[in-house]
């Protein structure tokens, strides 16, 4: 294969990971933006989504599309419910103190990972894609499902944007983000907003995981990379900015796809982590953010 098609393949792969990454990172960014909570357990919620997807698909007989569709509904809801419980049982009682919530979510991360290991086992398990369509390009065939993932991510992100900017729920969320005290004074139940945002963030991660699980198998340690990459994306995009997060996800996802085709993936990761650390040190508002976070 000559260089051009090779690059095209790398970009396509990059787009797929960017789509999944954008969904995951928007969840993390939303939680940080509204609640000022750094959710270290976000990767664990992602992993849990994939594992539940496998369980649902495995339990349902019939065509793979049916199991996948069921997983698409069940996994995000189940993970969102768990997240709401964590918010109610732990984060709320800590008063959303930034330091304490980090420590607590590290604890949640360990609990969820260990539970997945004990109940699900150490093996990586595949979920069948709902359809097997292969797009024949002049140079190589490409999985139609992967392109569907990109489309699905775009739809979901648009929906999130619409909810945030046009609906009453979004208004309430933004009000809580800007000034929780005043929002409470206007009769907004900020506790419910926080629980809802935390559940929504975790649900988005789970949804991304369900989408990715036919491409990449479910495994109890699969949450590490998405967590780290989401951090990177949220920071580069500017903490609390949805648009910046999506742009950064595209940037990181595509460049990671391209770089890891041509260079060692470890080296790519080292450079990405160092870059993020330096962005945080020298440009804490992120590359696209306007005011200091």
């Amino acid at each position: 294969m000559s260089f051009g098609p090779y690059l095209l393949l790398a970009v396509l792969e990059g787009l797929v990971s960017a789509a999944v990454l954008a969904l995951t990172a928007v969840g993390l960014g939303l939680v940080f933006g509204v609640m000022r909570v750094v959710n270290v357990a976000h990767g664990a919620f992602f992993m849990l989504g994939a594992v539940i997807a496998w369980m649902v698909a495995d339990a349902l007989p019939g065509p793979p599309a049916l199991g996948f569709a069921a997983a698409l509904v069940v996994a995000p809801l189940a993970v969102a419910a768990l997240a709401a419980a964590v918010d109610f049982g732990v984060l709320k009682r800590l008063g959303y103190d930034p330091d304490a919530t980090i420590v607590a979510t590290i604890g949640v991360l360990y609990i969820v990972e260990q539970a997945a290991l004990s109940l699900f086992g150490p093996d990586a398990r595949p979920v069948q894609a709902p359809f097997n369509l292969r797009l024949q390009l002049p140079w190589f065939g490409y999985s139609g499902y992967k392109l569907a993932v990109v489309a699905a991510a775009v739809v979901v992100l648009l929906a999130v944007w619409l909810v945030l900017s046009r609906s009453r729920a979004g208004l309430v969320m933004r009000a809580t983000q800007i000034d929780g005290e005043t929002a409470r004074a206007f009769g907004i139940d900020t506790d419910r907003v926080y629980a809802g945002v935390f559940a929504l963030g975790a649900g988005l991660a789970a949804l991304a995981a369900v989408l990715v699980v036919p491409i990449q198998q479910a495994h109890y340690l699969m949450g590490g990379d998405p967590l780290l990459l989401s951090f990177i994306v949220v920071i580069i995009g500017g903490l609390g900015s949805l648009r910046g997060t999506v742009i950064a996800a595209l940037l990181i996802g595509v460049s990671e796809g391209v770089v890891s085709v041509f260079f060692s993936p470890t080296l790519a990761k080292i450079l990405a982590t160092l870059l993020v650390a330096l962005v945080l040190v020298f440009r804490p508002q992120g590359l696209f953010g306007r005011r200091a976070a």
């Binding site: 000022r36 750094v38 951090f231 160092l274 650390a277 945080l280 040190v281």
Partner: peptide
């Protein structure tokens, strides 16, 4: 480098540097 930041940023910066070191 890291002490130019504080709080949550400090945690993430130290985490990132340590991760880069591990890698």
């Amino acid at each position: 480098l890291a002490l130019r930041t504080a709080g949550v940023s400090f945690m993430i910066v130290t985490l990132m540097f340590a991760q880069a070191g591990y890698l």
